[in-house]
């Protein structure tokens, strides 16, 4: 593909700690990361499961135990993902924060609109608190997944592309 507009890069990269040592290894594709995106996506799945559980019971007040359990499990997964993320070295943080900031703004609007609908429908008390907290975790998870996915494909041995 050399010569194509998106020709395969022949750039070399001073090997990251976890890059594959084999000959011809791709400096970006072969770099291994902790399961940050996987944990965050699992957290999103738990948040959505909690949301479905609550939505299946509303407008009647649902038993909150399962929803709180799902929320707590998701929050723990998010916290672990953030911890793993914070411990990364040689990572494209500039790109990560750039994407995360805009994605968070977008998902804050989305979560805010959904929260408005629940408040408008007179959801109150503990049910509303669980729903809002679920939306908050959701609005943190999705930008983290998007930003991490973009930043992990940055070659940190090269100057930033922007």
């Amino acid at each position: 593909m050399t010569g194509d507009p998106i020709a395969t890069s022949t750039r070399s990269r001073s090997a990251g700690a976890s890059a594959s040592p084999q000959a011809g290894a791709h400096p970006v594709l072969d770099r291994r990361f902790p399961p940050i995106a996987e944990l965050a996506v699992l957290s999103v799945a738990l948040m959505l499961s909690g949301g479905v559980y609550l939505a299946a019971h509303l407008p009647a007040p649902p038993p909150l135990g399962p929803a709180i359990g799902l929320l707590a499990a998701g929050a723990v997964l998010t916290a672990v993902a953030v911890t793993l993320l914070a411990r990364l070295q040689s990572f494209a943080w500039r790109t990560f924060f750039l994407v995360a900031r805009w994605a968070f703004a977008a998902y804050a609007v989305i979560a805010g609109t959904l929260g408005f609908v629940f408040v408008f429908d007179h959801t109150r008390g503990a049910t509303l608190a669980v729903l809002v907290t679920t939306l908050v975790v959701f609005a943190l998870d999705v930008p983290m997944v998007i930003a991490f996915t973009v930043a992990r494909f940055e070659d940190t041995s090269l100057p930033p592309s922007a």
Partner: peptide, 30 residues
């Protein structure tokens, strides 16, 4: 919910990552 997990967890991040890769001076085909 299932569609949202797939779309938010895989599809949309891949979409944005492709766009960022394509804006690089030398986008990587692989």
């Amino acid at each position: 919910a299932v569609m949202a997990v797939i779309a938010l967890g895989v599809l949309e991040p891949a979409n944005v990552a492709v766009l960022f890769e394509m804006r690089k001076p030398q986008p990587d085909g692989r």
